[in-house]
Each structure stands twice: as structure tokens, then as C-alpha cells.
């Protein structure tokens, strides 16, 4: 059994280790630390361009040659997808800068030099993730119309549901455009979609319950705005129906497990997908096969 050490995240790679007073750059703020990458909020060129900094740190358990090869491949894969999608007019964060060569960093304690990983700077998309938007909407619906889903003819309720359906069609439309551009996302959950411009004033998970701010005076949850796809860390270029169908399946399951009151409307996502992508027919057929197969993914989440 190996002993436990206190973990400190690795230092930021160059050039982000300069935090001097004369630049407007505040030190990048760490937002999330996944298995693959660390995400920071910072800016690009000047404070006028808020940016997300994604660092793929070196993985010391890997052979250094393999480590560099994988880190480079993956940061480039993501950067290429973003750049391509911007050119194709798909709503994704724009690529600002990328360093795939990786950096040599000096260990503060030992003075030893080692490979510090690669980074990517992209446009910061302001808004709430769809997971939060839908959760808020579901909460609103529950408060206003109770848990009885069979009540018909409630005009306001119907109007709310129509807004949600429109929103879901726009989500499907964004995914359709993505697939039409020949890119698959690879991890299409409601946490990887942002409704641009919204600000529900919702605290991050783990910071307690959502607060009632940021909605309009009536307490409606804003569903208008552009749907932006984010986190292309597992994305790739593919023209296989199977890969596209799996993207949709993952999204469907994300709705199923996270948004029980909205799951029933998932057909609207597929409707929006159909309308925005000409190759949708064979993908949707394939989706049925993927659903049947179900595999172990049905145990996830």
C-alpha cells in the first residue's frame, strides 16, 4: 500500500506563471480539476477577452515519451475541432491560442525540470449550463403547477412547456450543426451545453441550493439565447452514424438521469436535430439500435 500525500496542483505552465502588476491579467482562477484537464478562468490579450484556459498537465505515471505524445495529440485534437467548428459557424467557444509542444517547468521544491503539459486558451462563454437551466425550469414548474402532470388545459403551463420545447429544439439544432460539420462531441451531457447570456444567479454545485435571482420578475426561467456546445476534450472528427448516434444517446441518457420532468420532451431535441442536419435519418435509425443495445451504459449515472 502506498502512502497518501497532500496533493497540490502543479504550477501553471509558462506563460501563465507571470502575474505581474503592469498587465491586466489577474492570476488565472482554477474552476475545475478533472481527471484530464484543469480549467481556469482568465483572459486573452486583455481584459476585454475573457477566456477559459484549459491545461492538460503531464501525467507522471506515464512514460515521458508516451506522455508527451498523448498530451500533444489531445490538446491538438480539441483545438482543431474548435477551430473547424468556428469556421463552420457552429456555436462553440472560439480557439484563441494553443501550445501543444508542452513546456518545461521547474519544480519549486526540488528545482528539477520536468514536462509541464500543454494548454489551450478559448473564448469564455458567459451563461448557465443547460443542466442548471433545465433544473431551474423544472423547479419552477413544480412550484407553480405541482406534481400532477396530467392536468390539461392550463394555459400558462402549456406556454411554459412550449418554451421548453423550443429550447430543446434549439439544443437539437446545435447538435445537428455539429454533426453536419463532421465532428462528434464524445461527452454530450447537459453540463456541456451553455445557454449563452443567461445568468440565473445559481450557485455552483456544492455551494448550496439555487437562489431566486436572475429570473425575470415573474420568476420565469430564461430559455432564450444561443445554445453553445463546450468541452471538446473527447471530441473527434467522424462521419460514422454510430458515433453520432452515441452522441445523441449520451444526451438522451443525461436527460433521463438528470431531468426527469423534461425527459418526456426529448423528442423535441431529436426534432431540432432532424431539422438542422440532412443526414439525420440514418443517425436516428442507428440511435434506435444503440438504445436497444443499451449495454452497460444503462448503469451509468
Amino acid at each position: 500500500m502506498h502512502t497518501t500525500h497532500e496533493y497540490t496542483p502543479p504550477p501553471l505552465p509558462p506563460p501563465f506563471h507571470h502575474h505581474h502588476q503592469t498587465t491586466p491579467a489577474n492570476p488565472p482562477t482554477l474552476l475545475t480539476q478533472g481527471a484530464e484537464a484543469h480549467l481556469y478562468k482568465t483572459h486573452y490579450l486583455s481584459a476585454a477577452h475573457p477566456a477559459a484556459l484549459k491545461i492538460r498537465p503531464s501525467k507522471p505515471y506515464r512514460h515521458p515519451i508516451l506522455d508527451r505524445r498523448l498530451t500533444r495529440q489531445r490538446i491538438l485534437q480539441e483545438a482543431r475541432c474548435l477551430a473547424k467548428l468556428v469556421r463552420e459557424g457552429v456555436s462553440v467557444p472560439a480557439l484563441y491560442a494553443v501550445d501543444w509542444e508542452g513546456q518545461t517547468v521547474t519544480d519549486a521544491d526540488t528545482g528539477a525540470e520536468r514536462y509541464g503539459g500543454a494548454w489551450l486558451l478559448m473564448e469564455w462563454v458567459e451563461g448557465d449550463v443547460v443542466r442548471v437551466v433545465v433544473r431551474e425550469w423544472e423547479g419552477y414548474m413544480l412550484r407553480h403547477f405541482g406534481d400532477d402532470r396530467d392536468v390539461d388545459g392550463h394555459v400558462e403551463r402549456k406556454r411554459e412547456e412550449d418554451r421548453m420545447k423550443d429550447f430543446l429544439r434549439r439544443i437539437g439544432g446545435a447538435v445537428g450543426k455539429l454533426h453536419a460539420a463532421g465532428v462528434i462531441h464524445g461527452d454530450l451531457t447537459t453540463s456541456n451545453l451553455i445557454l449563452r447570456g443567461t445568468n440565473l444567479g445559481v450557485k455552483k454545485e456544492g455551494e448550496g441550493d439555487a437562489v431566486d435571482e436572475g429570473r425575470d420578475g415573474l420568476g420565469h426561467v430564461g430559455l432564450e439565447g444561443e445554445v453553445v456546445l463546450i468541452d471538446f476534450g473527447l471530441a473527434g472528427q467522424s462521419v460514422q452514424d454510430e458515433d453520432r448516434a452515441v452522441d445523441l444517446y449520451v444526451l438522451e441518457r443525461a436527460f433521463g438521469s438528470t431531468h426527469p420532468r423534461t425527459e418526456g420532451f426529448f423528442a423535441e431535441v431529436l426534432e431540432g436535430y432532424r431539422a438542422s442536419y440532412r443526414g439525420s435519418v440514418s443517425v436516428l435509425k442507428r440511435l434506435e439500435e444503440v438504445r436497444m443495445r443499451g449495454r452497460k451504459k444503462s448503469m451509468l449515472g
Binding site: 500500500m1 502506498h2 497518501t4 500525500h5 497532500e6 496533493y7 501525467k59 507522471p60 505515471y61
Partner: peptide, 11 residues
Amino acid sequence: GIMARDRGGTV
């Protein structure tokens, strides 16, 4: 073990 250590964990 190296991976777990870097996550503050144990193998």
C-alpha cells in the same frame, strides 16, 4: 500509485 498520489489518494 503515482496517479493516486497525485489525486491525494491511495492504491
